[in-house]
Computed example of a mutant assay.
Amino acid sequence: MFSSIDLDIRPGAGLGMFELGSSLWTVLDMLRSLQHMFPQVDIKYDPDTSSITPIILHLRPHIDLLFSGYHQRLHTICLRKLRDPNPPVTLRYRDTVLSSNEEVLIKVGISRTFGPTYPGDDLRYPGVLFSFEEDVIGEGLKSNAKHSEDRMQEVKRVIIGQKGVDAQDRDALDEVMECPVMFGDIARAVVKVNDGVTLHVYPASAQPIHIRIGETKAQDLNVILGPPLRVHYKEDDRMTIHSTSRSSDDIDDTDYFYNYFQHGIEFLISGSTHIVQKIILHTNVPGSPLFQRYKRCPWDIEGRPEDDEDDTPPRMRFYDRFETISHFLSPREPPPSMLLDRTDDENGMTLPSPTTRLHGYDGIILEVTESSQVVTVILF
């Protein structure tokens, strides 16, 4: 463990290595390489609303990171227990040390550094709040502390959030506003069955990216999405026993996957033509077997428009329940499903509900948890 943690505060932007707007996947991936600094990370969420639950990462003993429920973006950072020496924390603002082993963060010190602010129980500035009470992050940016005029009051919590419109603090359950750390990430993936997917990326002004099954080439993916984090050659042919289109002798064992873990999306590419054959989108639902292997890809499944003039066709979204999406894809009874236990290939992994079901439709397969959350969409 580090002898101390040195953090700079950036109101409305971040704290130390943590940037507001960063994805849950990115932050957890970074924390894996920082186990010497943060040896214990607790993940807290509501299992009853697992697909849209806000998530808290508790980095003992000092830092809480609150992520938004829909897009899993870092919304609020809470620094507390500033005087806990295990490990000691040094907090800086620009060139000024606010808190350390030798420097206690008190009310008058905040006023001298940040200047005047509005009356209230806490000291509020755009993008940062200093509280004198030990409350939990679930309280958001609000506090019920009793007002005190004591200039020597010790700061117990420092809370960093985005600067809201008209300098007003934003609700802890709001989604994170677009910011530079998101640029290049997928904001929305619009699925068209039997066609492909349209990726809308940050910033909002960027042109959408169209990827079509049977048309887009691996070279195109390298140009528009960059090189994949991993190229994986297809080795698992267990599903071919269910195929009615070709015999197992016809399977091309040179097919390969482009894995874009950082986008929550992967592509199966033909080894002979190098054209996209399948597109796989991941929902990154907490508690599911694939949680944190891929970033959340916020997908919509687009239906057929009512007529030629309908520019708002119906859509199902990643947080809709399986029964609703199934009826949307096929009003008949759901097709027979197959069981899949992803922990079979993972020695030592145990989950309360490791089994998912695969439901196949024309051109699309849904992988569904026992709680009716769709964790994977496969287009073919």
Score class of each variant (00 low, 15 high):
residue 49 T to S: 15
residue 241 I to N: 01
residue 233 Y to Q: 13
residue 287 G to E: 04
residue 226 G to A: 09
residue 171 D to I: 04
residue 154 E to W: 07
residue 15 L to I: 08
residue 154 E to G: 04
residue 309 E to H: 12
residue 114 F to L: 15
residue 367 E to A: 00
residue 210 H to Y: 10
residue 264 G to A: 02
residue 226 G to F: 07
residue 338 M to A: 00
residue 34 L to Q: 08
residue 64 D to E: 03
residue 1 M to H: 11
residue 119 P to M: 01
residue 88 P to T: 06
residue 33 S to M: 12
residue 376 T to I: 01
residue 228 P to M: 08
residue 231 V to Q: 05
residue 125 Y to S: 15
residue 182 M to R: 01
residue 185 D to S: 12
residue 97 V to C: 14
residue 126 P to K: 01
residue 124 R to I: 05
residue 173 L to D: 10
residue 296 R to C: 04
residue 67 F to W: 03
residue 55 I to P: 06
residue 160 I to S: 08
residue 301 I to Y: 07
residue 84 D to S: 04
residue 213 I to E: 05
residue 124 R to C: 06
residue 153 Q to Y: 02
residue 248 S to Q: 14
residue 9 I to K: 10
residue 41 V to I: 10
residue 314 P to I: 09
residue 242 H to I: 00
residue 379 L to E: 03
residue 290 L to V: 12
residue 81 K to H: 13
residue 100 S to T: 02
residue 144 N to W: 15
residue 110 I to E: 02
residue 101 N to P: 01
residue 373 Q to A: 14
residue 315 R to F: 03
residue 361 Y to S: 02
residue 111 S to Q: 10
residue 89 V to W: 00
residue 339 L to Y: 01
residue 262 Q to F: 12
residue 43 I to L: 15
residue 312 T to C: 14
residue 318 F to N: 08
residue 40 Q to V: 05
residue 315 R to D: 02
residue 77 I to G: 03
residue 113 T to S: 12
residue 156 K to V: 11
residue 20 L to H: 07
residue 247 S to Q: 11
residue 202 Y to H: 14
residue 288 S to W: 04
residue 122 D to E: 13
residue 29 D to N: 15
residue 178 E to L: 09
residue 261 F to G: 02
residue 73 R to Q: 14
residue 22 S to C: 04
residue 58 H to N: 13
residue 200 H to I: 13
residue 250 D to P: 06
residue 30 M to R: 13
residue 113 T to Y: 02
residue 4 S to C: 01
residue 140 G to C: 12
residue 234 K to N: 13
residue 362 D to Q: 12
residue 280 I to Q: 04
residue 196 G to M: 05
residue 376 T to P: 00
residue 10 R to W: 08
residue 198 T to I: 12
residue 16 G to F: 03
residue 14 G to W: 11
residue 262 Q to K: 12
residue 345 D to E: 09
residue 376 T to H: 00
residue 275 I to C: 02
residue 236 D to P: 11
residue 79 L to C: 04
residue 252 D to R: 11
